[in-house]
Amino acid sequence: MKIAILGHGTVGSGVSKIIQNRQGDLVSNSLEIKYIYVRPNKVAENPLFTADYDQILNDDEVEVVVEVMGGLEPAKTMIIQALSHGKNVVTANKAVVARNIVEFNQVANQNNARFYFESAVGGGIPWIINLERALRIDQIDSIHGIFNGTSNYILDVMTKTGASFADVLKEAQDLGYAEADPSADIDGYDIENKLCISVDIAYNTFVQPGDELLKFGIRNITDQDIQYFKDQGWVVKLIGRSFRKDNRFSFVVEPTLYSPGEIEAGIHNNYNYVGLRGNTIGKLSFNGQGAGELPTAHALVQDILDLAAHTSHLYREFDQPLTLDNSLKLKNYVVRTSADISTYLAGYEFTKDGNYYHIDQIDTAKMHHIVAEIDRRNIDVFLACISRHRTRV
Score class of each variant (00 low, 15 high):
280 T>A: 00
45 E>P: 03
161 T>Y: 00
59 D>A: 11
80 I>G: 02
314 L>D: 02
151 S>C: 08
174 D>N: 11
34 K>P: 10
288 G>I: 06
374 I>N: 03
65 V>P: 03
310 H>M: 13
321 P>N: 10
57 L>H: 09
152 N>M: 13
320 Q>C: 12
118 E>N: 14
303 D>F: 12
300 L>K: 08
218 I>A: 04
72 L>S: 06
39 R>H: 12
155 L>W: 03
74 P>T: 09
391 T>K: 11
381 V>Y: 11
178 A>K: 05
201 I>G: 06
333 Y>F: 15
211 D>Y: 07
232 Q>A: 00
337 T>F: 13
69 M>C: 04
376 R>Y: 13
212 E>C: 09
150 T>F: 11
141 D>G: 06
168 V>G: 09
117 F>V: 07
301 V>M: 14
392 R>Y: 10
245 K>P: 03
34 K>T: 11
31 L>I: 12
83 L>I: 13
82 A>R: 01
165 F>S: 02
124 G>Y: 10
89 V>S: 10
309 A>N: 04
85 H>L: 03
133 R>W: 08
168 V>N: 01
102 V>E: 09
87 K>M: 07
379 I>L: 11
350 F>E: 00
19 I>G: 14
113 A>S: 14
371 V>M: 08
258 Y>K: 02
274 V>H: 04
265 A>Y: 00
148 N>Y: 08
101 I>E: 09
163 A>Y: 02
163 A>C: 07
286 F>S: 06
391 T>S: 10
305 L>M: 03
196 C>E: 10
128 I>N: 06
379 I>D: 03
243 F>K: 04
218 I>N: 01
341 I>A: 03
337 T>M: 05
253 V>N: 00
195 L>W: 14
30 S>L: 13
227 Q>G: 03
47 P>W: 09
138 D>C: 04
229 F>G: 00
162 G>N: 03
141 D>Q: 07
172 A>D: 11
286 F>A: 08
22 R>W: 13
170 K>M: 14
361 Q>W: 10
164 S>T: 03
336 R>D: 14
26 L>S: 06
356 Y>K: 00
169 L>V: 15
325 D>K: 09
393 V>T: 12
260 P>V: 03
171 E>K: 15
265 A>K: 00
36 I>C: 09
86 G>K: 05
115 F>S: 08
383 L>T: 09
344 Y>K: 06
127 W>E: 10
259 S>M: 01
7 G>H: 09
386 I>A: 02
45 E>N: 06
165 F>H: 01
372 A>Q: 02
79 I>W: 07
